[in-house]
Amino acid sequence: MSRPKPPLPYNMREVLQPGDAACPGCPIPMAWKVLSAVFGEKMILVIPACCSSVVVGPYPGNALKASIIHVAFASAAAVASGVAEALKRRGINDVQVIAWAGDGGTADIGMASLSGAAERNHDFIYIMYDNEAYMNTGIQRSGATPYGAWTTTTPIIGKTEHKKDVARIMIAHNVPYVATASVGYPHDLYAKLQRAKKIRGFKFIHLHAPCPVGWRFDPRYTVRIAKLAVETGLWILYEYYDGKIHLSGASRPYIDPARRKPIEEYLKYQGRFRNITPEKIEEIKRYVEMNWNWIKKHM
């Protein structure tokens, strides 16, 4: 029997050591396996306070066969700037610097340092893994929590504002590369990281990462929900370079609203939307349509 070609390189297996401290069904280590496939051990992750600070496990061990610098909450992009410049100075060019931060560490407390690093165009990849709330501290609302979602700080009526669109903010910085991605689409993430790896300067990837604990769903559904976000048109996969949006293959069918699954399909799996009203669902639909119109205008 001939060996079938694996859909992703075998070195996807290399970096993540079994026995990490993530909750069952956590999307974070799932994405690290894709990073492993692209960079292997040759990456330095700069991680601010977030779930990942815990997921890699306690001293003296570390679940990743890679380098990690844990940093203070607001500073991932700033520390990564310093690391990238020091490596350049020392003539080291075979190691990828990656700022790996959650949505709170990016969209909220880390926004200024992110904006500064992007404007200065340091040569590293910033990955915002977006589980849409402060999960590590116990599911508090963040700037990236979606409209209508329950969190422990929006406990009864749910969040009354929409999600901050960080990818678009980064596009406005005129950086060489911005992309959205999802843990449900590892091949797509792989291709995007491969492209980012070849580009010099600042790269930003907004990675959608459904959290079983915080979104209140069964851990077995992490991938299913990540895919539903795309299939309902709620999460749009694209790349931005050369001044244009390039819609990714997985999201291409959903430019046509008729081909999208109903939003309710996505919401019904998640306890955080249990008390959502029909009016609020209509508002989410309006918001999704608005996002698509923006995408279409910039393609």
């Binding site: 940093v71 607001a74 700033a78 520390v79 990564a80 310093g82 690391v83 020091a86 490596l87 100075r89």
Partner: peptide, 9 residues
């Protein structure tokens, strides 16, 4: 923070 990052590297 950037100074720290550069120093660590």
């Amino acid at each position: 923070a950037a100074t720290f990052g550069a120093a660590v590297a």
